[in-house]
Amino acid sequence: MGAVLLANAITAVFKYDFLQRALVAAVLVGITAPAVGIFLVQRRLALIGDGLGHVAVTGVALGLVVHRTPVLIAVIVAVLGAVAIEIVRAASDTTGEIALAVLFYGGIAGGVVLVSKAPSGSRNLTQYLFGSITTTSNGDLVVFAVLAAVVLGVVLLLGPVLFAVSNDEEFARALGIPVIGINILLATLTALTVVVSMRVVGVLLVSALMVVPVATAQLFAGSFRSTCLYAVAVAVVSAVVGIVVSYAVDLPSGGTIVLVTIGFFVLALVASSLLRVMRAGAAHGGK
């Protein structure tokens, strides 16, 4: 039964354009989300993706109200939110958590209020909140691909600087690195990643792909670099498997991808715990 569903899903991939677009989008998300998320986790700001996802809701709602491309408006609003949060964090004593909370509430509230004025109502908003692979257009895919290329290019180019600032902000300042600028850049990359992910997992679930694959990878990785590579691999596989499963069993794509990602994390957690116990046993037996 399961094998038949899977075979049908794989056949459908070759048959339907929308599934091919969904898979391309899933791979883009799988690569970009953990590549940015690893720096957020190291900065202990893992939930900033959630905050910016909420801000993107306002952007999407605004797009629905003014009949413009919600994706592009979400990019603008999320980037503005990213810059705002870092400026607030740098310029005042407001802690990161409070600034994030303001983003959470303000973003959702703005989205709810704005969408009430949209001609199509809140119906269209749901696909952006939780992802909707079937509605991914070629135009969306081009925007996502460009954004993903920008995000990955910056991460590859400035990875050492992003690492230095994420790992030890004070030391980075002592080195003369413009820490505020780098933090704004990282928040902007996060905002762009949120938008890249909005059709696949949705803005409310994107943070899971930024954080959970990194958490899975660090269970086995021995370095920052290998954690990043493993996390990308986990996220790409999770996203692709999630898309295929969601089509095969007719489930929502965003939730399915996130559940698959969490499933891999739980498996990795169990495996790493078993490995630790076995190594401890071997060491004990060797004495």
């Binding site: 202990r44 790992n167 370095s223 954690t227």
Partner: peptide
């Protein structure tokens, strides 16, 4: 040591 593994070389 932060949340992500970092080697002495990387640090």
């Amino acid at each position: 040591a932060g949340p992500i593994p970092v080697t002495v070389n990387e640090l």
